[in-house]
Design a protein around this nucleic acid. Sequence first.
DNA 1: TAGATTGTTAATCGATTAACAATC
DNA 2: TAGATTGTTAATCGATTAACAATC
Lengths: 222, 222
Amino acid sequence: MNTQELIAKLPHKTIERLSQYRRALLICQEKGKEYIFSHEIAEIQHITAVQVRRDLMLVGYSGTLRKGYNIKELINLISEIIDCPRGLNVAIIGMGNLGRAIIKYLNKRRPRLTIVAGFDIDEKKIGKSIKGIPCYSPDDMKEVVKELDISIAVVTVPAHKTNETAKRLVNAGIRGILNFTPTPMIVPENIVLEEYDMITSLEKVAFYVKQSILEEEAEVNS
Amino acid sequence: MNTQELIAKLPHKTIERLSQYRRALLICQEKGKEYIFSHEIAEIQHITAVQVRRDLMLVGYSGTLRKGYNIKELINLISEIIDCPRGLNVAIIGMGNLGRAIIKYLNKRRPRLTIVAGFDIDEKKIGKSIKGIPCYSPDDMKEVVKELDISIAVVTVPAHKTNETAKRLVNAGIRGILNFTPTPMIVPENIVLEEYDMITSLEKVAFYVKQSILEEEAEVNS
DNA sequence: TAGATTGTTAATCGATTAACAATC
DNA sequence: TAGATTGTTAATCGATTAACAATC
């Protein structure tokens, strides 16, 4: 089995964790660390050392007994797996607070993912540069996407505009979408779609907080 | 088995979906719809009808054959499961773009989750009201949390401040944290913690986009 | 009635963890 | 050497899906 076949078979969860490992490793590297043990990575990520080792086994990386994993090598390997060698260009759809937060958040951090354009219906924003990113009208989406070779869109428009935006993006030839709106998107199945829903996350926290309050009350009463 | 025991046993994924079902149902209700079929809910959420029915089975709700589920009843039941009857108060830690986006995003939508305070180290923000939310100094966190009965914190501070913030929050007696920073948090295990990491999500999309590009190229070559 | 739908069990799939051999 | 660590298989756990009975 060649490398690409191996990569194609990686579990979804392993992909997520590889991205997280890399970030942790980059921080360790900055601190001048050269080697890291599986249990150290595990501790940072709140998972078990076995899981780290299993993930690394799946990507075919071997550590050194008693020394652990070479941080630099591992970063390079993960980058080879996750990143596109040429890099990929990203557009932000909706340049409100959230869109701007994402630009700020992301821009220096990921050399292989470059935000090259923003889109907004606000006439005051169109034609200007916001946090260093040129802002275009959604009417020009098809041309801009082609021109700037954009393959990923991060959508932060208001909820009721979600599927109108989806249609435009698909029509413009985008390949992957990260949807921050609370409305689930409808796209053809060849489009990579990730729903990223903060309301659900917050409600989940609220639910478990409620449970912990109830448990506490039950204990007091017993 | 009483209701509370039943609720405590719900799978994590079911909790997430219940939150999503409720949002979809609220929209349907606004449109004047009274009943909904499992396959309709499924379509909105990109899941199967069986899964919807199974989730509803787990929460003990029965629909009507050939009519489907009563939207209003179902919304009420989900709310009973997820929400705290008294509601819960939320604080935003870090009033930058992301913090403000979350305030705007959330504030009217969730009657049982109320953002009552923001915290920021910026002297210019402290003492002012931002998007209707009063902003405090992190130094006053303990008092404010107690005073305003805040049980959940949404953290949007810079990455290197994550664990300093975590310590303050735990010390202030917060019960649940939604962490938007890319650094995994360290908290005692009685604290409800949800990591919400946009870089991982974006890198995941990028990975699968890369895979779809590679597949396409392989097809062309064959 | 036939067809559409709900409700539920059993089977399958995917992810995590336990157990342990290998070895520096 | 003993102990710590990696690497891997098998077992377990949790979530989804297939199959189908019930019924309007």
